[in-house]
Design a binder for these strands. Structure first.
Lengths: 222, 222
DNA sequence: ACCTGAACACCGTTCAAGT
DNA sequence: ACCTGAACACCGTTCAAGT
């Protein structure tokens, strides 16, 4: 996010905890127990300090979460060899972002709290925009195309992660089954037709299929 | 969600508050002050009762939010005349869902807490799946196509609503501007090229463009 | 059957003071 | 400059008791 300031002559009380230490501990809590367990108080005790000491190193909890996403992106997003063909390049770059996010279920809370503006993710954004331009889109339309891909990708992550959490909680999962079991075939014939296959069908990972359709549609006739 | 049980001979203490009253009051709080202000305690005092009384009518806060989304869908989703041409029908049905959600910024928290399984929304889902089948997709592929549209739609709402909230909070909005202002044109030429137009470009409402691209891609060559 | 009061086990954040 | 203790103003939910 921001580089540490150039080293100055130390003045006053020497720091006991650092931003890096805070983020590192937060990362451990979040990967081990989920983002729901990350509280400022918990984090403070884990770094051996008090809640208020944290506020000397991060502005508030939201900034901490953004720093955490940044840290995660820097740590895991490796730039792969991308195909030369522009459409395939767009698909590959989007898939790389998607895979990184999918491997990281706590991301959802942060996604809704921040745009994907981690500096290390920008290279992938560049590849997508550039690939779309290479397909014949104007720079403006390429940015809009990237946004459409980002909406699709973020939505897939949010919906799938939430569905997975729900599945862990039996009682609520059955509500959807009830609704589908009670469908009136006269009113909603298509849904009634696929009602018993709905759960497995929607559990399938079809991210790439949809992505390809979207990229095809965005670049059609150019 | 669930129909009220058939009226029985009343036994024991007569109820002072009803599920309808709770949902109605919750709806008022949420539309007037946002979903962040809806707490069980606040809601209890507004209906003139105590927090615990609520738990006799709803299981917990999450159920309340789902009931609220259901109530909103039933109240606002009117079935429009849809075009006969199948692709246009898919676009129109998805746009109707999108408009209803976009008019309702508190929805984001509930979207991530629930699939769009409100009974009143199912008619729109039916139209989308049926439209895709009419375009030549198999029922299974039509369901996957609906899911792709749903990911795109939910993602657009989540990302745009969050961005709008951020814009209200000046300090954080400028972080993205900083990142874009400091882009290295040698490393990320496309992004550097559009850097100064990024904010207005991504603020444009291009939901329909992306949706049409996605639907075109899903139905291409069929 | 329905509601109440008190309590449990927490939150994020601010303030004033200490070293 | 950095950290601490105590407090503020809250949360959702459970338990045991009352009517």
């Amino acid at each position: 996010m921001s580089q540490p300031p150039a080293p100055r002559r130390p003045r006053g009380r020497p720091p006991r905890i650092s931003r890096e230490e805070i983020i590192g501990t937060a990362r451990r809590i979040v990967t081990e127990e989920g983002v729901g367990r990350l509280t400022m108080r918990r984090l403070a005790t884990e770094v051996g300090s008090t809640p208020m000491a944290l506020y000397h190193h991060v502005r508030d909890k939201e900034e901490l979460l953004v720093l955490l996403l940044d840290d995660y992106a820097t740590r895991t997003l490796r730039r792969p060899e991308l195909p030369g063909e522009p459409r395939e390049r767009v698909v590959a770059a989007a898939t790389a972002i998607h895979e990184a996010l999918a491997a990281c279920p706590w991301i959802v809370e942060v996604l809704t709290a921040d745009d994907l503006m981690s500096t290390s993710a920008l290279w992938f954004v560049e590849q997508i925009v550039d690939g779309l331009v290479a397909c014949g889109l104007s720079p403006d339309r390429a940015v809009h195309g990237y946004r459409a891909i980002w909406y699709y990708t973020a939505g897939e992550i949010v919906v799938r992660t939430t569905a997975a959490r729900r599945r862990a909680d039996d009682d609520r999962a059955t509500y959807r089954e009830q609704v589908f079991a009670g469908l009136d075939p006269a009113e909603l014939p298509r849904l009634a037709q696929v009602a018993d296959r709905w759960a497995p069908l929607t559990a399938e990972d079809t991210y790439q299929d949809g992505l390809r359709a979207l990229v095809d549609g965005l670049t059609a006739g150019r």
